[in-house]
Amino acid sequence: MNGMELTTLLAAVVAGAAPVIFAAVGETVTERAGLINLSLDGSILLGAMAGFAAALYTGSVAAGFAAAAAVGAVVAAVVAVTGVYLGQSQVAVGFVLTLTCRDLAYFLGNPLSRVPGPQVSPLPVPGLADLPGVGEVLFRHNLVVYASIALVPVAWLLLYRTRWGLAVRAVGEHPAAAYARGVDPRRVQLACAVVGGLLVGLAGAAFSLAVKPGWGRPQGAEGMGWIALALVIFGGWHPAKVAVGAYLFSLLQVVGIPLQALLPSVPTQVFQVAPFPLMIFTLWLIHLTRSEAVERWAGDRAWAWRLVHALRASAPRALGKPLSRE
């Protein structure tokens, strides 16, 4: 593989990861507040449909993204209100919404199937786009891709360097303690659900208006919501590590086709389902790093100690649990 091909490949990885980053970072924000929005796979599709429809009828791609974000926020708000305020199981509501939103998208989007529509136009960054190598990989994309790259540090800053982020993390770890410090856990969870939902909706529009332009049944974004949920775990609920996971997933998709030609004995399906066993393996590793035996074993070995601590990402302690009423 020569230099030319490598930059093209990396550029494809960066572009392909954009919608997954929106969805996975959005879900990271939601889950850090202790709320789990399981509806991603459906709300991405509904966002994709709504975004495409709005862009088609108004002729404005921006209107498409706004509509998709609104749809994602509304779906997430339903999860938060029924889960937090009405005391229903977040998992149950999220799961029902996954199926319902998917079918709603197919039903309402039926007249839009295979209709040619607008899409995001490329916008090379003047000056930077001509840089050798880096230019092609990072600066010859569209606004959606730039936004996906910018989102990662922004989410990190928000979560780790602002008071709001501190409140979010406190609610996710220990809602009762946060309450005692004057933070209303319900409002924080609702806010994080809506912020996360906005990003999930944008992910949908990023599919239907940029990465896989157009609408149809199937659209091509099916399964991506589950991938995003898996990536949040893979990345240990940290925006930067989640983004690394998204790029690895995108790499797997991009190299899947040429790699298949090189290794004909490995079935295509292996590349498609690979992220899921990896997710299970990651969860198992997280569990292992917390066991006493591993602790003792790693205690004598400096490298193992560092490794265990790097892996020891833990889920927000209150994740998915109902808030007690007091």
């Binding site: 009405l86 005391g87 229903q88 199926l99 319902t100 079918d103 709603l104």
Partner: peptide
């Protein structure tokens, strides 16, 4: 119209029950 209407109704029933029940 698309046949996914059945899925919309099925999901809406469960959601309506959860919301009304919780409320």
């Amino acid at each position: 119209v698309d046949s996914s209407l059945s899925g919309v109704i099925q999901g809406a029933v469960v959601l309506a029950v959860l919301v009304v029940h919780g409320w």
